[in-house]
């Protein structure tokens, strides 16, 4: 049992991890087809996992509806949306479920274009107000760091709109310099740390040093 729960996953992680690293350097068709084979397995696993995902979603919302928890009406809408979308996908603009899905026409496409896309756009548009409220909180210059942030944000914001150049001609250049030099330097510093972090995490998992993904960590 311990072999199946601990040792086998560690062996699989080591073997697949090493294959993943090696095929990056080997252009031979054998290595490339092995990589494609692994990607196919990944897609197959994802397809099965999608069934689990749908089951989880339905079970969660069914328990909300059954217990009539707060805002259970939204959970009911999940079922309505799921059933309607599935029926439209099966209907497939009249040609049935065994043909490739029809794009740019039919009720399934209509649902996507006129329900999903506007709903997504609505959520995205809310971001503007959230940015404003978050910026307000951040720009209260209580500390020297917040004051620096406030000044640089004002320069960049004003430097990026036409009125910035009207106030002072050099403002767009200063804003661009701030983006190209201090901002880019910080960004690259983070990226270097992230890259090394990825190498370290990958090594820890491949060599079995990191085992918390198996649950708990220590044996």
């Amino acid at each position: 049992m311990l072999f199946l729960r601990r040792t086998l996953p560690l062996i699989i992680a080591f073997v697949v991890g090493m294959i993943g690293i090696l095929v990056f350097y080997i252009p031979h068709s054998g290595a490339q087809s092995l990589e494609q084979e692994l990607a196919t397995w990944d897609r197959i696993v994802a397809a099965f996992a999608l069934v689990l995902g749908i089951y989880s979603l339905m079970r969660l919302h069914w328990s909300r509806v059954r217990r009539q928890q707060a805002a259970w009406g939204y959970s009911f809408l999940v079922f309505v949306g799921f059933v309607i979308t599935t029926l439209f996908a099966i209907y497939n603009d009249g040609i049935g479920p065994f043909e490739p899905q029809v794009l740019n026409s039919g009720p399934f496409d209509w649902m996507y274009k006129y329900v999903q896309v506007p709903a997504d756009a609505t959520m995205f548009s809310i971001l503007a107000f959230f940015i404003a409220s978050a910026a307000y909180r951040t720009f209260r210059a209580r500390t020297p760091e917040a004051a620096i942030l406030l000044i640089s944000a004002i320069i960049v914001m004003i430097g990026r709109v036409p009125i910035g150049a009207s106030i002072y001609q050099g403002l767009p250049e200063i804003a661009q310099w701030m983006m190209d030099v201090p901002n880019l330097a910080a960004k690259r510093g983070i990226l270097l740390g992230v890259s090394l972090g990825i190498v370290a995490t990958s090594l820890r998992i491949i060599f079995g040093v990191e085992r918390s993904y198996l649950g708990g960590g220590e044996e």
Binding site: A46, G53, S56
Partner: peptide, 21 residues
Amino acid sequence: NQDPVVMAVSQEVVKESYLNA
């Protein structure tokens, strides 16, 4: 979770962690 595979892995990890605890 937003990804079904991540969800399946998370379920196993949380279950194991509760078991270990």
